[in-house]
């Protein structure tokens, strides 16, 4: 593994982001809109029922932490897709950069996008609704760690899908975020989901991260068991994502799919 090559991947994506204002939508615009939407909804619910656990702090903390998952996933997946959009994939495949180095570069770059998006949502939440990240406190770190890892795993798996099925499958990159949002209990406990979906939700490590978040927001200590389950599950997601993508990459190379992108 070469740190030099990983740094080059990071530099490449930094320049791409800098030169493409529309890519700031993921970092700035959608997070801003999400905070306004969920913050307003939380405010309305609180006006109806002051003691509700679906009030502003719960919904805003949920959307803030969801953007950690969203950004880390989207940075890895769209980092790769950038090469397909610019028809640069064959150039990348013929460099010494390994698959792992490439994903590592996009994942590290994704951390910068996570921080930018977090800044957007936290500043907006504070200005518009008086919500401060202090309400989550240091518990945010292990919760965010689970969500970042899950995002990496899902992002890498999405790369595999695009390698195998082509650019038409890119829609899944955004679609999986909505699936995770619905099933992970970002704003509600798993028990509120339809019965058939609850077992699926409990398998997701992100569900345990959001369970922990709700517990902390309720004034209780950080549930360590949820964090451990989330971290172990997240690691499983990363391993599974890499294994799936590796398999897809072999099919991609065996069937000569590179010509689709060049």
């Amino acid at each position: 593994m070469s740190w030099r090559r990983i740094r080059v991947v990071i530099r490449r994506h930094t320049y791409v982001l800098w030169r493409a204002p529309h890519r700031w939508f993921d970092i700035a615009f959608w997070p801003l809109m999400d905070v306004i939407l969920w913050g307003s909804l939380g405010t309305y619910i609180a006006q109806q029922d002051a003691g509700s656990r679906a009030g502003t702090p719960y919904l805003i903390s949920g959307i803030v932490m969801f953007h950690v998952l969203f950004q880390s996933q989207i940075a890895v997946a769209t980092g790769f897709m950038e090469e397909t959009w610019s028809r640069n994939l064959l150039n990348v495949l013929t460099t010494p950069v390994t698959e792992f180095e490439y994903v590592a570069g996009t994942a590290v770059f994704g951390m910068a996008k996570v921080l930018l998006a977090l800044t957007t949502v936290s500043v907006t939440a504070f200005i518009a609704f008086g919500f401060s990240l202090d309400e989550i406190g240091w518990s945010m770190v292990p919760i965010a760690a689970i969500l970042v890892i899950v995002g990496w795993g899902v992002g890498v798996a999405n790369i595999g899908v695009v390698l195998r099925f082509g650019q038409g499958a890119e829609i899944l990159t955004w679609g999986t975020n909505f699936i995770l949002m619905a099933l992970s209990g970002v704003f509600n406990p798993v028990e509120a989901l339809p019965g058939a979906l609850q077992p699926v939700a409990r398998v997701l490590p992100s569900t345990h991260a959001f369970n922990a978040l709700r517990t902390v927001m309720g004034g209780d200590p950080l549930p360590v068991d949820e964090i451990v389950i989330g971290l172990v599950g997240g690691a499983g997601f990363v391993v599974g994502g890499f294994a799936f993508s590796w398999w897809m990459l072999r099919i991609f190379r065996r069937r000569g799919f590179v010509t689709r992108f060049s």
């Binding site: 030099r4 090559r5 740094r7 080059v8 530099r11 490449r12 320049y15 791409v16 030169r19 610019s86 640069n88 150039n91 990348v92 460099t95 010494p96 950069v97």
Partner: peptide
């Protein structure tokens, strides 16, 4: 080619 070419690749 992408906008910028990096020799570091």
């Amino acid at each position: 080619l992408p906008d910028r070419v990096f020799a570091g690749w």
